[in-house]
Design a protein around this nucleic acid. Structure first.
Lengths: 224, 224
DNA sequence: GTGATGCTTCGGTCTGGAGCGAAGTGTCTG
DNA sequence: CAGACACTTCGCTCCAGACCGAAGCATCAC
């Protein structure tokens, strides 16, 4: 007996892990690019692109083209409401994420979040820089203190001052409680980490794999 | 990869056509056997049995064994709320099932939503009660005004004060724009409707079929 | 112009899981 | 007890779709 609207199509769209991760990321209300969403979902750009087409056709998200970027946002508030309701139900049913594997442990320790460092190490760095007064401010408006700027320059970290994107930003971390550092500074520090050879980036993952010496050097350099 | 509850598991459970048909059937609020649900979904008993195990493990439905029968019902009202919200979204996105027949019209007019009245009539009742000040509050926190409580008692509507579930709740309606009344009061009013003989309930549907006199009495009683 | 970047499309592989037949478990009737 | 009935479990097939490499567009920077 088929009555009423077809739940299954919509639920099936939300029901794929990659897509639900993208939708969850879009719950922030911000518009995100395909690349950012791919990174959020932990899949390659081609895969994400396919998912985004399906979500768009299903009416769950909307696309805005700006130059070579495609920005995506939730289609409307009703979509957000349904996602919120699903989150509530999932929480009530104890379906918290508990996946644990070797891959997962590495991801939780240190990973790339778009273009900056996330995970336990990213959160520790962020907390350390704030405790020492290198970073100031709360929430979205974080700034580099003058002493901090000098310190970064002394380390040879270049901030690409041409870009108009925010210099410092905090980004919520899912694996560790707290935030990590995003923005141009976050990007520059991650780049520095790779050029110094402290860590490598295994193919097709978000994992940032520090060497033992590399992690020690990283902690010492940023003094946390 | 974001923090928070895992939407995907729950949504994936709902996202299969067979399972969503079963859940939709259970939205009637009645307990159904595995065999009945299999025929609702259009699959063999073995297949349905597998789905029911998964839905049970996911916390969406509950099982009661009675002799050689297994009866299933939705786990709780929250599940029903989420399903109703999904129906609303699906309807808004034009994912209606192609069949639009007399049945569909009846469903839109008046139907059961878990244990309370939904459809045009349910929304009209809700709007009427609010306009007259019987119900107060916005969003999730809706309450029965003192005058309203007296009015309901005068009508002989019993509120089962033992239950700890909320007395009044609003529930989004998918067929009409607006909300209808859920919670203990919503349940009591629907029970009253049947005991008064204003409406009957055709087998195997969510339809609530009012008689002409019954609908008039219903509207007059609740004064809308 | 050339090269870099962001995204899409195409073609291919591979796995999760939906489906069913058959056999097994539990419950009722006579 | 045997046999009917309701449901579950097992074993198997099969396919949708998730994923990625490579190639193709479009846009930007120089």
């Amino acid at each position: 007996m088929k009555e009423g609207p077809d739940i299954a199509r919509i639920a099936n769209l939300i029901g794929d892990p990659s897509r639900s991760n993208m939708l969850t990321a879009l719950m922030s209300g911000k518009a995100l690019t395909a690349g950012e969403l791919a990174s959020e979902a932990g899949v390659q750009l081609q895969t994400a692109s396919g998912h985004l087409v399906r979500l768009e056709e299903g009416g769950l998200i909307k696309r805005e083209r700006q130059g070579r970027h495609h920005y995506f946002r939730l289609a409307d508030a009703e979509v957000a409401t349904v996602l919120e309701a699903l989150m509530g139900l999932a929480a009530a049913k104890g379906q918290l994420r508990t996946r644990t594997g070797p891959r997962d442990l590495e991801l939780r320790h240190a990973r790339v979040c778009y273009n900056h460092l996330a995970g336990e190490l990213g959160v520790a760095l962020y907390d350390g820089l704030r405790a020492r007064g290198v970073l100031r401010g709360e929430g979205d408006s974080i700034a580099l203190a003058d002493t901090g700027r000098a310190e970064m320059e002394a380390l040879g970290i270049e901030l690409n001052t041409k870009s108009r994107s925010p210099e410092c930003k905090s980004c919520l971390d899912w694996s560790a409680r707290g935030s990590h550092l995003a923005g141009r500074l976050g990007r520059a520090i991650l780049d520095h980490t790779f050029t110094q050879g402290w860590a490598i980036r295994p193919e097709n993952t978000r994992i940032v794999r520090f060497t033992a010496l590399g992690e020690a050097a990283f902690r010492k350099t940023f003094n946390f």
